[in-house]
Structures are given as C-alpha cells and as structure tokens.
Design a binder for these strands. Structure first.
Lengths: 344, 344
DNA sequence: GTGAAAGCGCTAACAG
DNA sequence: CTGTTAGCGCTTTCAC
C-alpha cells in the first residue's frame, strides 16, 4: 500500500518528499527528518545513507509543511511604514535593507518585505499577528514613529532608530550614535580654528534632530562658546537654504556651520554663495548622513558617515537572537565616523 | 470529544483556528473555509454568522496550513543577482522594488527578497525549486545576465530588462523602450538645430548599451547625418570623461552629445568644460535614466526618463497573471519620456 | 538510535 | 448549499 505508492512516485519523478527519501534510503521518515535537521543522535552510517538519498532525489524540504508542523515560519517581516516613495528615494534606507538581506542570507530566515500603505494598515497587522513570520523589523529613518511598539508584546520586533519617548523601554532598538557623531563634526570645526559655529538642526520631534543638536551644543559648551546660533529645518534642501539665510542675517561673522543632514547642508551651500561667501574659506560646512547629495556636491561635503549597512545587519542579527531566545541588549548604538572632504 | 476540546480552547484564548470559528458559528470547517475564501455558494445568512464569529475570535488564517493544503504559497521571490552593494546604490533598482512592492500590496502575494551572494547560489536555486514561492522576479539593471533563464521551465519567472540573446524566447520580460527613448533624445538635439551630434554609448554587451546606440544611429541616418561619431563607455562617470575627450579630439565641431546614461553625461560635462566650452551654448548634452546625478548637476541635465516604478509594477502584474494562468505578452515595453532641463 | 503514530490548520473532492 | 472525509509534507512524542 503506502510504500508501493511511494516507489511509484519515486519513479515518476514527482517533486521529492521526505517520505520518498525515506523509502529510497530504507529508513523511516522520522530518521530522515532528524538528518535534515541535524539531530545529533543518528548513526553516522545512517546519516550518510540518508544524505545520499537526499542528493540522489534532489530533495528539498517543503517550507509550509515544516512550518506547520514545527509552528515556526523561519520568515522575518521587514516593515516599511513611511510613505513608500520617500523611503525608497532614501539611500540610507536602501543600505539598511541591504545589510538586513546580507545577514539573513547567512541564516535560514527569509525576508518578507512589506510596504505599509496607510490604506491598509490593518492588513499588515493581521499578517504579522497571523503567525506568518517569526519576527519583524521596522525601519523608520528620521521619524521616531513607532506605532508598531505594541506589536512587540506578541512578536519579536526590532526597530531601527531610537524611540522618541522612553516609555517603550521593553522594545529593542538599533540606533546610530547621533550625538557623538555631531560632537565629532563640531569638534573638527573647532579644531580647525572656527570660532563662530552655527547649526541647522533637524526637526525637534525626531530623535536624530534632537540628538544632533545636543551634540553641537555639548561641544560648544565645553569650549565656552555661544550656543544660541541655531535654526531648525525639516531635513529638506529648501529648509537648509532658509535656515542658513536666517543664521547669516542674525550673525554675519559665522565661519562654520554644522547641518543635521547632508541635504540641508547642500541647501546651506546656496545661501552661503548667494551671500557672496566662499566654502570653506569663509564658512566651513559639515553635514550628516554621508549620502549621494553631499558626495557629489561642489565642494565635496565633509560629513558624518552613518553605518547604514551595518545597521541593517545588526537589526537582523538582534532579531534572530531574540527569536531564538538568546539574550540581547535593548539598545545597540552604532558608531559614526567623520568623512573629511573639501567643505571643512 | 473533539468539540469539547475546541470549546475549551475557545475559552482559553489560544490562537484561533478555523475549527474554533466553525464551532463558534455552529457550522462545519468546510463552510468557514468557503467563507474565508469568498466562495460564492454560501448562503448570505450563514456567511454573516461566520463573519461575525471570525471577528469575534479575531481569526486569521494560518498561511503555512493553507499553503500546504492548497499547494500554493502566495509568495513571490525577488532575486537580486548582481553584487548587492552595487545594486542597492542604484536608485533605479530601488524604484523598481518600490513598484513591485506597491503592486503586490494590492494582491494576496507576499514578497520574498533574496540577495544572491555568489557564495551560495545553490541555496537560492534550492529555495526557488523547493516550492517556497509561486513565482520569481529577476532584476538586473544594465546587464543582460539571465542565468536564471532555465528556471522558467519549472517556475513562472519575469525578468526586468530584455535578454541579450533571443534564444530565451520562452521567457517573460519587462523592458524599457531604450531605442525609442534614445531616438527622442537625439531628435530633440536635431530639432534644436544641432548639426554635429556625437554619442557616448554604453557597453555593447548589454542590451541598453546596444539599443540606445541604435536609437542614436537611427535618427541621424534619417536626417542624413554622420553616424561615425561615437565612443563606448562603461556607464561610469569616469568613462564619460574619457569618451568625451576622445570625441572632441576627433571632431572639435561637435555641438550636441547624447550619453547612454546620466552618469556618463556628467562625466562629459567635465571634459567639455575642460575644453573651454559651455553647456548648452557650445554643446548640448542629453543623458538617459533621469537619476539623481543628472537632476542635481549644473546645468540640470536634460535626460530620458526611465519609468522605473512602473517597471516594477508591471513585472509584478505580469508575474501574478502568469501564476494565475492568464495569458500575458512575452515582452512588455515601457515608454520612456524626455525630461527637458537646462543642458539641451 | 530508530520507528510508529499522531497531529499541525487548512483545502478539496465527494456526497447528500 | 453544507457537511464528511481525506490528506498536504513534516515534526515530534513515545515506545522499542
């Protein structure tokens, strides 16, 4: 009965199943399963016979069946909450995804990318709660938006970027050390002899905006310098132009400026030139992010590099550990580094 | 027996199963399944009772079980074959992925992103052949590399970009109309009075390189103009510089140049300026791609826009149709459009 | 160490 | 139109 059918399929060249491998190797399905899952208690001889059968049949385990029986999916969701278009235009995001995918390639986990269109946020929640994945990764570049925070009570979740409020202390975050990065940049300005250093800050309702401003303030304070010279932008080039103009109007003696991101720094370039000043001779400029805008600008922008690929890798690493029950830190901070080019 | 256990679980607040919904609604599991899958032959009354039970229990179907029973995965693989780093730095690729994800969000399919690291190409093949996905999408920007061509005999596959050779005629492709785009660009140059039009072609072993050169040649031929003025680059800015210099050395009277991509066009900018010529007064320049390099250059580059998001969307749309057995065209060509800015 | 048996949660004939 | 009956392919106790 059963084995006849199997023998038949074996010959038919159908998609090989564990049962067929078992028949081919002359062992039980349980044993094949053990070999496939690397169980230690299987005789080497048997293991080899099974391995051979697997290769002979070109057997590949069926994911769905395995998932159903083991109650694990071996899949991880990558949630992209912000407006899709904006997120994908962001090179930072692309690098993070790259890092995630690279790390996952070394594991048995699969990456399920989900673009969260607001029109169907319920769909995403259902997907995540429906046992379709073992864990989720949430990327939200600049915004501190963590509307998925509650999710973590049901499912392992790792966020990219720190939360705005610390009430969500039971969540896991991978963050870039924004404040330290900003400090490095401003310290560079100070070290190169600049004495009137302004900053174009990011939105003060976003963690990176807050932290980078704090870094600027910290260094100036240490050097007993004026800490009032800042204007807030929204991370767009246009806001960089406006902010720089206001800064120049307030204090014409400015000889150094730290912008909270590269795009605003490029905006500042325009305002500075319009005022008839030169970069870096009259005003040194440093940005933050190390994106394509700054790299291709003239003069090439000195900026703070964000370890974006590394961030993705770390997010994936932490999530996998979390899923597998290993202990991990609640907050991981990644180091930034100053990329000195021509603008400062 | 059975129903007692179910009633118990119902109270216990365990993850709801179809069986629990059936018990709650007082119908059979089959009926619940029909309602969930939108079968037309269920009485409205019954449907409603079931729906209510589903909501009451907050039931979500288990994907693995459904997949196992129906022998469908409702998942699509996105394969990224080229060196991951390069691909992700490419804004074109990011947009394509965006388009794919956007279309899939409207369907019941899930996107599995796979970065194909050469170290484990076998893993990818096994994954695809192991019945883990219902179909695959292969993106390869400029290269005509379709090493996955054979796959399509086993699994529905849709490629982005046309194949280099036409031997793979049983495969499905979504391509951009490179030749027509190039023709539009060159026609624009001709229409604006340019008489000595050169081109910086892309690699001649890549479809876009070939097609864009063909477009240039076609228009010049139509106008009885010289068709010898071309140099081949490798799509990098540096190769654009070199090619432009050679072109200028060969023919100083050049007053228009069409580059096969924006990055080479920007390279040409340097060479042109170095020769003491102005853009667009002395030489009009047009690129191809409409990427960030051209948009932020000075003067802003006139270029041919690639419908990248649309390409992703189309790839996903075609693959889903293919999976569901609907007829689709073997080759879909997407229209490009000329973006006139300051350089021509 | 290995096999037998019992499901995992759902779909899909097949009756009725 | 609805219920019954079998599995889908694999893991996992529990005996042997």
């Amino acid at each position: 009965m059963g084995s006849d059918g199997v023998a038949e399929k074996l010959r038919a060249g159908a998609v090989p199943t564990l049962e067929m491998v078992a028949a081919h190797a002359g062992v039980s399905r349980a044993t094949v399963s053990r070999v496939v899952n690397g169980s230690p208690k299987v005789t080497p001889d048997v293991t080899e016979v099974v391995q051979r059968a697997i290769e002979a049949l070109n057997y590949v385990p069926n994911r769905a069946a395995r998932s159903l029986a083991s109650r694990k999916t071996q899949a991880i969701a990558l949630i992209v909450p912000e407006s899709a278009a904006r997120v994908f235009a962001d090179p930072f995001f692309a690098s993070v995804v790259q890092g995630i995918a690279l790390h996952l390639a070394d594991t048995d986990y699969t990456l399920n990318m989900i673009i969260e269109s607001e029109s169907q946020s319920g769909k995403t929640r259902r997907y995540l709660l429906g046992g379709n994945v073992d864990g989720a990764l949430v990327v939200s570049h600049h915004t501190g938006d963590h509307s998925y925070a509650q999710l973590s009570r049901t499912l392992p979740v790792v966020f990219g970027g720190r939360p705005l409020s610390d009430t969500e202390s039971d969540n896991y975050f991978i963050d870039v050390d924004n404040q330290h990065g900003a400090e490095t940049a401003v310290a560079h300005l100070v070290a190169s002899g600049r004495t009137t250093i302004a900053t174009i800050a990011g939105p003060q309702d976003m963690p990176p905006g807050l932290d980078r401003l704090a870094g600027w303030r910290e260094v100036l304070t240490q050097h007993g310098m004026d800490t009032e010279l800042f204007e807030v932008g929204d991370f767009s080039p246009a806001s960089g132009v406006t902010a720089m103009k206001r800064l120049l109007a307030r204090e014409p003696k400015i000889d150094g400026v730290f912008a909270a991101n590269d795009q605003m720094a490029i905006g500042a370039y325009s305002a500075i030139r319009e005022a008839g000043l030169r970069i870096p001779e009259d005003i040194a400029v440093i940005g933050f992010d190390d994106d394509i805008y700054g790299a291709t600008a003239t003069p090439a922008l000195t900026t703070v590099h964000q370890p974006s690929v590394e961030m993705g890798r770390e997010m994936a690493r932490v999530l996998v550990k979390l899923i597998e029950g290993e202990p991990v830190d609640t907050l991981t901070k990644l180091k930034t580094s100053l990329v000195v080019r021509a603008s400062a």
